[in-house]
Computed example of a mutant assay.
Amino acid sequence: MNDNRRPIESRSNRYVVALAAFLARTRVTPNQISCASAVFAGIGALALLRLDSIVSMAMAIVCIQLRLLCNVIDGLVAVEGGKKSITGPIFNEFPDRVADTCLLVAAGYAANVPSLGWAAALFAALTAYVRVFGGAVGMPQRFIGPMAKQHRMAVLTFACAATMLETWLNRGHVCLLASLALIAAGSALTCVTRTRALIHDLNGAQEDPEHA
């Protein structure tokens, strides 16, 4: 396995594989799919701002899942479909940072705590920074959690579903606020765990004469 490729179980899902195979036969490029993930995230962010609407929360959930689907399919089309490009690594990273920021910041404004949304987005970006920095110094990129991208989106999806229930029961909206706090704290901890793993890898490489 490529050390710089995120391990995702859904890559082996036959429906996902079939969709990727179909797109690989078209003129659609992996970079376009990567950009589509940011578009879906932007639509999801707008939906998040309408916190009192069950329909909007459902749309946010769909957009979050479509964002994740694009993140899986772009790599399949690029690698298994033979459409890798020199600019692929850029499009693989930048739209993800835009998508995370749009969704988390919008969630913060929806929960009436913008600073928490911005904090969650900042720590989410830092988790990616630490991972990519590991690759830049010659180490395998670490996709470990506890709040990697798929975990952040799972928590946000659950929060949207819980918000739908809160709206239906005419209760106050606290689940989205709690989820943002969890994402921010978990992402900060992920920065620590990835940094520690990187230091361990670097120390191990220094002690390994073959690597040196």
Rank of each mutant, 00 (worst) to 15 (best):
A197F: 06
L76R: 02
S115N: 10
F123M: 06
L51Q: 08
D201P: 01
S53K: 06
V192Q: 08
A38K: 11
T101Q: 03
A121Y: 02
W118F: 15
L66A: 08
F40I: 05
A24K: 03
L198S: 05
M139Q: 15
F94K: 03
L182H: 02
S37I: 09
T195A: 14
R5V: 15
A124W: 05
A162K: 06
L49T: 06
G145R: 08
R50A: 14
I199R: 13
P140N: 05
N112W: 00
E80N: 05
G135Q: 03
T193M: 08
L198P: 01
R171T: 06
P89H: 00
R171Q: 14
R67G: 12
A125T: 12
I54T: 11
W168S: 13
L103Q: 02
L66E: 12
A212M: 14
T127N: 02
A197K: 04
A184T: 10
M1I: 11
I86T: 04
K83P: 00
P114S: 02
I33S: 09
N2V: 06
A78R: 02
N31Q: 15
R194V: 13
N203D: 12
N203M: 12
D96R: 08
L69K: 01
I33N: 06
P140E: 09
G204D: 13
F133Y: 13
A41F: 12
A148M: 10
F91M: 04
L48T: 09
G134M: 05
I8P: 00
R11K: 07
A106F: 04
V113I: 14
C191H: 11
H173T: 07
N31C: 10
C35I: 15
P114M: 03
A41Y: 13
V55M: 13
E80Q: 13
M164C: 15
A58K: 00
A58M: 09
A121W: 03
V132S: 11
A111S: 12
V98H: 06
W168Q: 14
A184H: 11
T87R: 07
P30M: 12
E93K: 05
L180K: 05
R131S: 07
L182D: 00
P89K: 03
E80D: 05
K83G: 00
V79M: 03
C70N: 11
M1V: 14
P146Q: 13
L189A: 14
V77W: 05
R67Y: 04
S53L: 09
F158E: 04
S12C: 00
